[in-house]
Simulated scan of single mutants.
Amino acid sequence: MTTRSCPCGLPEAYEACCGRYHSGAAAAPTAERLMRSRYCAFVRRDAAYLLRTWHPRTRPERLDLDPGMRWTGLEILDTTGGSAFHTTGTVTFRASYRGGSLHERSRFERVDGPWVYVDGDFPG
């Protein structure tokens, strides 16, 4: 077991943080935690988790992750809704990778309890 902090940017070890969501031992309790766990899944190239946490209405048939992509950090810029008391939420973030960054406002909804990613747009 490693003691390095989770790639999502929180100080917990991966196993205690996003690892428990990736393994299915727990569901992300908020839209932000789901977004962080999805970023971590991109870092770890866990396409199965990404597809499992994608809304059935917008989920692609498959996901091909670039093995050369090196994600280097996540910054949460804003959140609206997305708590245990909401059914929808948005998370605006900047995900850095070697050579650039991705700025997205992601939309999340609850489907039969758990949070799922719906879609996102790229704020100007």
Results as ranks from 00 to 15, higher is better:
Thr87Cys: 01
Glu32Pro: 12
Phe93Trp: 06
Phe108Met: 02
Glu61Leu: 12
Tyr97His: 14
Arg52Val: 02
Tyr97Ser: 09
Ala95Ser: 12
Leu34His: 01
Leu63His: 07
Ala25Asp: 14
Ala13Thr: 15
Trp115Pro: 00
Phe108Gln: 00
Thr80Gly: 10
Arg38Gln: 03
Glu61Ser: 13
Pro123Asn: 11
Trp54Tyr: 09
Asp119Ala: 14
Phe93His: 04
Arg20Glu: 10
Asp78Thr: 13
Gly24Gln: 11
Arg94Gly: 10
Tyr21Ser: 03
Arg4Asn: 09
Glu104Phe: 12
His22Trp: 09
Tyr14Thr: 02
Val43Lys: 01
Trp71Lys: 12
Arg105Phe: 03
Ala27Gly: 04
Thr92Ala: 09
Pro56Phe: 05
Met69Val: 15
Ile76Trp: 11
Glu109Ala: 13
Arg4His: 08
Met1Pro: 08
Gly120Met: 12
Gly124Ala: 15
Arg98Leu: 15
Ser96Trp: 06
Trp71Glu: 12
Ala25Ser: 14
Gly113Glu: 09
Phe108Val: 00
Thr87Ala: 07
Tyr97Glu: 09
Trp71Gly: 07
Ser101Leu: 09
Arg62Met: 09
Glu75Pro: 10
Arg45Phe: 08
Tyr97Trp: 14
Arg59Thr: 07
Leu74Val: 13
Arg4Leu: 10
Gly81His: 02
Ser101Met: 07
Cys18Phe: 02
Pro7His: 10
Ala95Trp: 06
Ala31Asp: 00
